[in-house]
């Protein structure tokens, strides 16, 4: 998360609701840049060298325009789609120590977890205990249940993978087409999370924050404001899909071993991505880019969607955090 300089004296938690926080996520780095943990990195510095050399500088410019003086104040550790990238408890301990005292908070990101992954995640959560403003971003309801059962005081955030809405980049900007029946348009521009059953779950599990994507389709107002919990919105990548088989890992796999969940892996995801260009219907040859990052596909949303999301920040009460993912960055000086 990032804080504006106007909230510089406040802790991230104290600033919630008054300022907009900006968190930085490095889903494929073995460790967050030390300068970021020490609270010394500017937004420009942090996004420099990012994978999308066009999108990220433009995003930094847009963020600074909407949130003047903002600096990163929260670091996301872990990967939202692959449990092989879970950090170790020792690493969490050292990062927490590095961040202590400089008002940089930690968010531990958990992917949808297997039974082994859940056991590992519980050890990580114990390593986070006592760390100010730390939170855990959960990617599945089983993890939410287990963590809430065993860690009643833990701040649990619902990760964006649990936000069930269609977001297919090939079609999503047509979801609110006036040619579609009104009920269909409405249903495609909101989730089921305001229904009584989902509300009961949010209360039962004490969820105070949920993450959402920068949707191509304009979400209905209620989807933003009709809820009790705070919202964190991701930029610039929209999650599209994931599998337990991994495309980059197939680079050095052999025969039957490729695409098996938990199969051989040399951390190819930290070295390579695959960019696809998929056609859009009626696009006269136009296409949308999808980025295979590890075992997931993402879409970097266009500038007008970034602007639409950022423009909400000044008028909304619920969205008080922006999460910027940096798939890869050049090594930064420590």
């Amino acid at each position: 998360m990032l804080q504006t300089k106007y909230d510089g004296a406040a802790s991230p938690r104290e600033s919630a609701g008054r300022g907009v926080e900006v968190g930085i996520s490095f889903p494929f780095l073995a460790a967050p840049p030390p300068s970021l943990l020490r609270g010394e990195a500017s937004l420009d510095d942090t996004l420099r060298g990012a994978l999308s050399r066009n999108a990220h500088p433009a995003l930094a410019e847009a963020l600074l325009r909407h949130l003047p003086g903002t600096v990163p104040s929260r670091v996301y550790i872990g990967n939202e789609t692959c449990e092989r990238l879970l950090p170790t408890p020792q690493a969490i301990g050292s990062w927490a120590a590095a961040a202590r005292g400089v008002r940089v908070a930690l968010s531990l990101v958990l992917p949808p977890l297997s039974r082994d992954g859940l056991a590992k995640a519980e050890r990580l959560v114990r390593a986070l205990e006592g760390v100010d403003d730390a939170e855990v971003v959960a990617g599945d309801w089983g993890t939410v249940h287990r963590l809430r059962s065993r860690h009643p005081g833990l701040a649990i955030v619902l990760g964006r993978l649990t936000h069930k809405m269609l977001r297919d980049p090939r079609l999503a900007d047509l979801f609110d087409s006036p040619l579609a029946p009104l009920p269909a348009r409405s249903a495609l521009c909101r989730s089921g999370e305001l229904a009584p059953g989902f509300r009961a779950l949010m209360e039962r599990y004490g969820i105070g924050r949920r993450e959402i994507d920068p949707f191509l389709q304009p979400l209905e107002e209620d989807e933003w404001e009709g809820r009790e919990e705070r919202l964190s919105v991701h930029l610039p990548y929209q999650f599209v899909t994931m599998g337990r088989g991994c495309l980059p890992a197939a680079m050095h796999g052999e025969g039957k071993g490729r695409f098996v969940a938990g199969g051989p892996c040399r951390n190819e995801c930290a070295k390579y991505a695959v960019e696809f260009r998929v056609p859009v219907p009626g696009g006269n040859g136009a296409g949308r880019h999808l980025l295979a990052l590890g075992n997931a596909l993402y879409h970097a949303v266009p500038p007008h969607v970034v602007e639409r999301v950022l423009a909400r920040l000044s008028s909304t009460e619920r969205v008080d955090r922006v999460v910027v993912a940096v798939p890869a960055a050049e090594r930064q000086p420590s």
């Binding site: 297919d168 899909t241 070295k271 390579y272 960019e275 696809f276 296409g287 596909l297």
Partner: peptide, 19 residues
């Protein structure tokens, strides 16, 4: 638009190095 997964192998793509 059909299944994205079925579409992917036949659309233009490139491998991007991250480092």
């Amino acid at each position: 638009v059909g299944a994205l997964c079925v579409q992917l192998p036949d659309v233009p793509h490139r491998v991007l190095p991250l480092t």
